[in-house]
């Protein structure tokens, strides 16, 4: 599974990106794209059109919510999942209104990632 899938991970923490990749690798071997801030995430999205984006909110050089809006402006069907430690009411609302499909509270539970991957790519 996932051989033909492109997943973009936007997080300023190299460790957070590694942890997420390690979880996803249990379910398949997609092509990973990595960005360390909001601007890089937007640029990479436009260049590579990934199938799925995991995005942090608190990041330097453009936060996650601004990045979501810019990506959705470019591609209204973009599949963006927020993975963040700051799942407060206002952040959740802002992310969903900007166009995020889901919001995962850190620390990440592998079964939630599995559910997200399986619901999108099972059988591919």
């Amino acid at each position: 599974m996932l051989d033909t899938v492109k997943i973009l991970i936007g997080d300023d923490s190299i460790l957070a990106r590694k942890k997420l990749k390690d979880i996803i690798l249990q379910y398949g071997t997609p092509l990973f794209l990595e960005a360390k801030d909001g601007q890089e995430t937007v640029d990479l999205y436009k260049k590579e059109s990934p199938d799925l984006v995991f995005l942090d909110i608190v990041m330097p050089e453009k936060d996650g919510n601004t990045a979501i809006r810019e990506i959705i402006d470019f591609d209204k069907d973009a599949d963006i999942i927020i993975v963040s430690s700051v799942g407060t009411q206002s952040q959740l609302k802002a992310a969903i209104e900007a166009g995020a499909k889901d919001f995962i509270q850190k620390p990440v539970q592998p079964e939630i990632i599995h559910h997200i991957i399986a619901s999108r790519f099972e059988g591919r």
Binding site: G87, T88, Q89, L92, D102, F103, I104, Q105, I112
Partner: peptide, 10 residues
């Protein structure tokens, strides 16, 4: 460990 709304959504 998480906001109630987030729990309902997930």
């Amino acid at each position: 460990a998480q906001f109630f709304g987030n729990y309902l959504l997930s």
